[in-house]
């Protein structure tokens, strides 16, 4: 797994609650037996105007100009800002794979669905939980920034988008105004992200303990073996 380092990135606002994994990556793309290549189909049904199928040339498809990730200022977004219960629905790891393939490194929301939250860490994505009020402020700041950088309904692309600086080590986010927001993260998961540790490798350091457990359990509950 890639190490998670401090970085600054453009924030794309996805102003929705309950963004489910079917929306993040629709089921037809789950037929792939690979881990990569899902980025062009991230949010497929919202992003394109036609029906997406695996094997299509996505560069030829009609895009939905209203969808946030299709606006040029967000093409290189690496931070996704969303509302509550992000990632609800299925356990498909294709959801974090798709987000990551697109270039997203951090997702900020008031709450996440458990399995999705967990899957993010396994893939070097950082999900950040912030309070509703802080999320509201961030949405407002992104919107205000957009107004400033829009002239005659056209985006002034010379100005970089609204950006946040994320530091996992100090568990803090710096906004363009210099404000610092701190966030919580599980110490074990933080460690794994910071050092790019592989869970399986870690577990296999405990082979003897697993065997001892199995041995004991086999006496207690032999029908399980």
């Amino acid at each position: 797994m890639k190490k998670f380092e401090t970085f600054r990135g453009i924030v794309a606002p996805l102003d929705r609650s309950n963004v489910d994994t079917d929306a993040i990556i629709p089921k037809q793309f789950l037929k792939s037996i690979k881990r990569s290549g899902f980025g062009p189909n991230l949010f497929d049904a919202w992003r394109y105007l036609d029906n997406g199928e695996p094997g299509m040339d996505n560069s030829q498809r009609p895009v939905n100009p209203d969808f946030v990730l299709n606006q040029s200022r967000y093409k290189n977004a690496s931070v996704l800002l969303a509302r509550k219960n992000f990632g609800c629905g299925s356990s498909r790891e294709h959801a974090p794979w798709a987000l990551q393939d697109f270039g997203i490194r951090v997702i900020i929301a008031p709450s996440f669905a458990d399995i999705f939250y967990n899957n993010c860490f396994k893939n070097g994505l950082l999900p950040v939980v912030l309070e509703d009020a802080v999320i509201d402020t961030l949405f407002n700041e992104v919107a205000a920034f957009n107004e400033i950088t829009t002239f005659n309904k056209k985006e002034v692309t010379a100005l970089p988008g609204y950006q946040l600086e994320i530091d996992l080590k100090t568990q803090s986010i710096k906004t363009p105004s210099g404000a610092v927001i701190s966030f919580d993260v599980d110490a074990f998961r933080k460690d794994c992200l910071l050092h790019g540790l592989d869970d399986i490798g870690l577990t296999l350091q405990h082979v003897e303990e697993i065997k001892a457990y199995e041995h004991r359990r086999q006496q207690e509950a032999p029908w399980l073996f």
Binding site: S90, S91, E93, I115, N118, N119, K122, N123, D199, I200
Partner: peptide, 10 residues
């Protein structure tokens, strides 16, 4: 409970 693919491998 349900798990993701990394956990399936685990």
């Amino acid at each position: 409970f349900g798990i993701g693919t990394s956990e399936v491998e685990h």
